[in-house]
Amino acid sequence: MKFPPPLAQKIAFFVLFVMTLFVVLPVLFVMFLIVKNGIGAISWEFLTAMPKQGMRAGGILPAIVGTFYLVAGAILFALPLGLFAAIYLSEYSQDTWLNRAIRLAIINIAGVPSVVFGLFGFALFVSFFKFGASILSGSLTLGIMILPVIITSSREAIDAVPGAFREVSLSLGATKLQTIRHAVLPHALPGILTGTILGIGRAAGETAPILFTVAAFYLPRLPQSIFDQAMALPYHLYVLSTQVPNVDVKIRYGTAFVLLVIVLLMNLIAITIRSHFRSKKKW
């Protein structure tokens, strides 16, 4: 069957539009559902109190705080490591089989299922290094998981800095290290930050990597040290939804709502930083 071109044009446009709609609709629907059912649960008490009556009442403060600690720890570990690796790969590494293997490995890490990270973290940090189920183990595990995000986005940001900047700097008698420090990194910073924040968003929402390494089922107090177990929002949500009978739907959705807001907020900050710097840069 053949359509006349203008009609084919319209059909194609319509089909593409509907496909796009299919992509966006589920996301919007999920958000709508969570916001609609969750926003009612939000109160000062919900955000700042300990859970009570076996998590069927009270607040979710320890889960919020736990997620915050875990994410902060993951960044503390992954940002320097990832940034230095990115600098090495972009500015120093030659095209040898070893460096190609490293690059391939980084891409592959990004594709590893998160539950594998959880088991790996359990084996290495909890058992082998004997950190136990603790914020330390959980942070390190999450850190490893977001390393590829940070390395990849940092590399992209570093590679996007025009070669002319390096040339000028070197021609003025700067060392390679000075050139990276003064002529490359300042201009790559927005991209690096964006990647880091996206990493944070990812780390905040993951359940599997913290399942065996840190997450406490029910711990109605704030963690005292990095060797403490902690509650975390995604795992708490999982527990509320599947492990505890008779939990008010409102509390479940409220928890999901808080997690969603945190992750969206992170992404919003990332986008704002990026567009702010993008409007400034001219090359």
Partner: peptide, 20 residues
């Protein structure tokens, strides 16, 4: 090399100030 480049400077084809 660093001393050499300090003494022999270069102006490039395209003006290339840093975006600062």
């Amino acid at each position: 090399l660093l001393k050499l480049r300090k003494k022999i400077g270069m102006v490039f084809q395209r003006p290339n100030p840093f975006p600062i």
